[in-house]
Design a protein around this nucleic acid. Structure first.
Lengths: 165, 165
DNA sequence: TATTGTTATACTCTATAACTATA
DNA sequence: TATAGTTATAGAGTATAACAATA
């Protein structure tokens, strides 16, 4: 794939092609995931929030890890609360609200993971070794992206000084 | 990454996690790409259309390969035509309109690829071998997705019976 | 009758700005 | 003064349905 030795900035062009290929592939995966998620009665954004909530997290944290604005998380939390999937829990810092999965929310999260896996047709084209390789590569890239919940060892329960903020 | 031997449907769960990781990573790449594209004066959808148009393609084909509706491509084509990046060319089947990059369009496409490559910070974390591996994996997955332009050897210029339709 | 591209319209996702309550 | 969450609103992206021209 990497076309070698064709002058300057060729490397950027190759990287550009790789980025475009990644977008194209991920769009198809996204469509697979969206189908699985909708058949579980959720929209994609709501589902992604549920999948992010392995641990209770301040809404602000969720906004960061979802890459969206705080205001958007309000609506997401409303939707999830209506469905009985999360609870808002006031933090020690009383400005903060943590989102915590209910038992129903945890069940749905597990079901979502299975459903998404079963519906991911594009990933089915890879054998076990290839999946491992892909996971490793993506992890290298994603390393450093903001994590879902609180950084380990945060001084108090509401993780006051999360990575970089 | 693949947690082995923990009961049934564990494989689906692992696949689900991989799909979620892919979405998360691709979102970050998308953000990188969007920045590069905007600094070239285009929106992301317009840019993706330009990048898809290595060869002139019927609008319907572009809709398929972009994974969107025909009606949306009308607006995309309008935007690109306004900027002098593409021309609409009536096909042999006179219902069909091909989108063809102008010289300015081709120049911009090349510039976009360079700009995107230079702005893809996440991909910069991979060395050459890792990029090749990623490209290979993504290609395996994307193989079979509808191609941008006409399938090679289409009977007449407007590729009447494109893959599967 | 079926298909291409177009138009008009509406919906979903998401951000911006201003507000409140804490800190 | 700065930050967390909320509200109201606006914008981007995209689809749906009905239509004209062509096959």
């Amino acid at each position: 794939m990497t076309t070698t030795g064709q002058g300057p900035s060729t490397r950027d062009v190759d990287t550009g092609r790789l980025a475009v290929l990644l977008l194209r592939t991920s769009d198809a995966v996204r469509a697979d995931v969206a189908r699985a998620v909708e058949s579980a009665g959720l929209t994609l954004p709501l589902a992604r929030a549920v999948l992010q909530l392995d641990e209770p997290a301040p809404m602000r944290n969720l906004a960061d890890s979802l890459g969206c604005d705080r205001s958007y998380v309000t609506g997401v939390a409303d939707g999830l609360e209506e469905r009985g999937l999360v609870q808002r829990v006031t933090g020690q810092d009383r400005r903060v609200k943590l989102l915590r999965l209910t038992p129903a929310g945890r069940d749905l999260r597990d079901e979502l993971l299975r459903g998404i896996g079963a519906a991911s047709h594009l990933l089915e084209r890879l054998n076990d070794a290839e999946r491992d390789a892909l996971a490793t590569l993506l992890s290298s890239m994603a390393d450093g992206l903001l994590p879902s919940a609180c950084p380990i060892g945060s001084a108090d329960a509401d993780c006051p000084d999360a990575a970089g903020r």
